[in-house]
Design a protein around this nucleic acid. Structure first.
Lengths: 355, 355
DNA sequence: ATGAAAGCGCTAACAG
DNA sequence: CTGTTAGCGCTTTCAT
């Protein structure tokens, strides 16, 4: 039973239905001006043969791919211990599915991978790209601009005017991004601690080569412009980094009575050190995180007060913006100019027991 | 500066290098029988024009796609609170990258999506598929077999002989899978508890429509063939499910002195209930999980003793098996017969404080 | 070793 | 409305 013959082609369907290839094509693609009896014959032939269009052939002529690349540029293991990107993916996937687009995942582990990604994007496999976790010195934006693929960034891109990809100036679309209100969320967190009567409020930052960390730090400074410099400790978004920073903090400022950690993972490290030193949370030291990453935030002891961002919605929105721009292609897909233009999603404070 | 012209084609490169398209093609694809001076001219032309092959055109003739679909069939939110699949993806991605293949992610949220996935797989977009999180009644295996795409399953497929996809009998390749030694890991966990002198050892199962849950239960039974039935409580791999099960357990068997939870998420729910009831871990009740999901397992109070499986390695291995089969396509890619054939990865007990 | 030519399967004018 | 006719950009015999 050598059923293993190659897939039926348009030609085969046309023959079976006794029509031309063009007619079959019309029916398969929505069947506009095709009279009903004919269309029906074609549909039956399609079913009987189990015909499925060959996407490569179709793309070759339409230049569309119904596929979007998702680029996650995280050299570190961190992302993978992090439900963050899973949630983004979920939001993206839902939206793409609604638009009949496929999700091509491009994970970059190191610098070597960047060239590969650039090549792929330039290869015209996809209709657009969604790019995450950019670091300040990341070569990716340049490669992407060069590839000439419509792109939406996740998180505010970090380049300053001078260091922006040069092609941008040449009239290319301005970078478009979706971000959370990191700064506002940080402000809310600090205000909450202040409202609790805390005086010595510290901040343990995230990796400052990412704008999310910078923005959260800025938010902290908005509320504590005159903070003792020793109350700001640089860290890296990881539990281990949080532990390290908290130890340093305790050594330098034993009177600290509140900590705003750059994310929940960091906060979990902070809590561990506090428990180890016999300090009570929140009585002795209040702790607040960022992300509302579940189940971690609920499972810590005590459960973590934190700033929630709607990660899945970010993903969904990114996809929607990309596809929206794609749909009206030919027109100006994005506002002109070189200044990043973006949508900023609100954050909300979630009160649990730690602050 | 209308640099926005369409990408250069082979033709353009050929013209620039003063050779034929065929020659350029040869150079681009490894440049076998092309004399060096010529090849060099071509390479320069490629660089100058920034030529990148159009994959659609290439696939159209080669019928290869250098792309693999990863299907994650998890209708529930659970996966996304779960670093599990992120780790799998990482392993897969690494391996695919090494083979110059792209990863196309297919997330199915509900039954409606299955048809879409089936269509995609049948559409010949990819060279193979990696499929996860199958449930016992999942229609996906059938669709996949019908699509005729080489496939490797993550986790032992759950169908029994009778309910196997019928096409399998027709001489198609047998299902191939990669799994962890769930049964062996469960046995090790229970033996550890026994070694601790525990007598009333309970098991809170995972969702029993997944083979991983069934296998862990079987492992438990191997060691406790005469267990009091009330010591086995069915659950669903979630923290909330773990809480529910633990409450039930405590109500029915107040003398329980050890719990083997089907995974770490479940164990975290168990710990929460225990803390709430004022029971000490491990003094009053020892708890052991499964997965070694970080950072959760380290962050619980007390840190969780658990059975580790190397999730990333599973992913890597799946990809390797698929691509290996692909490479020797034309031959028998998989052993004949309808019996699932698979590779089972070892698990190891990680001792922390909870047992 | 290189070039010429024939498609891969499909869509998109253009005729009729 | 439906069929005919060109290609899309590439690989691949087959000549040379």
């Amino acid at each position: 039973m050598t059923e293993a013959m190659s897939r039926p082609t348009l030609e085969a369907v046309a023959a079976r239905a006794g029509v031309s290839r063009a007619t079959v094509s019309r029916v398969v693609n929505g069947g506009d001006g095709v009279r009903e009896p004919l269309a029906e014959r074609v549909r039956r032939a399609v079913d009987e043969l189990g015909y499925v269009p060959n996407q490569a052939a179709r793309s070759l002529v339409t230049k569309r791919h119904d596929a979007v690349a998702v680029v996650i540029a995280e050299p570190e293991t961190r992302v993978f211990a992090d439900p963050f990107f899973a949630l983004q993916l979920r939001g993206i996937s839902k939206e793409l599915t609604a638009h009949d687009s496929q999700l091509v995942l491009l994970l970059t582990e190191g610098r070597d991978d960047h060239a590969r990604v650039g090549r792929y994007l330039a290869g015209g496999h996809v209709d657009g790209a969604l790019v995450f976790s950019l670091h300040l010195d990341d070569p990716l934006p340049v490669l992407i601009q060069r590839a000439g693929v419509p792109t939406v960034f996740g998180g505010r891109p970090g380049w300053s005017e001078g260091s922006a990809p040069s092609e941008t100036a040449a009239g290319a679309a301005a970078p478009v991004f979706v971000d959370s209100d990191n700064r506002g969320g940080a402000r809310a967190a600090v205000r909450h601690l202040v409202g609790l009567g805390r005086r010595r409020i510290a901040h343990i930052t995230g990796a400052l080569d990412q704008t999310s960390a910078v923005d959260r730090l800025d938010g902290f400074r908005d509320e504590r412009p005159d903070a003792d410099p020793r109350l700001i400790v640089e860290s890296d978004f990881t539990p281990a980094g949080g532990e390290r920073a908290m130890r340093e903090l305790l050594d330098n400022c034993p009177d600290v009575d509140a900590v705003f950690a750059a994310n929940d993972l960091t906060a979990s490290g902070v809590l561990r050190v506090l428990r180890e030193r016999g300090l009570r949370v929140p009585q002795d030291i209040a702790v607040i995180g960022f992300d509302d990453m579940l189940p971690l935030a609920e499972q810590t002891d005590p459960p973590l007060t934190t700033v929630r961002q709607d990660i899945e919605e970010m993903g969904r929105l990114m996809a929607r913006m990309l596809l929206g721009g794609l749909d009206r292609r030919g027109g100006d897909a994005a506002p002109g100019g070189g200044e990043p233009s973006g949508v900023v999603l609100p954050t909300t404070l979630v009160r649990r027991a730690s602050a």
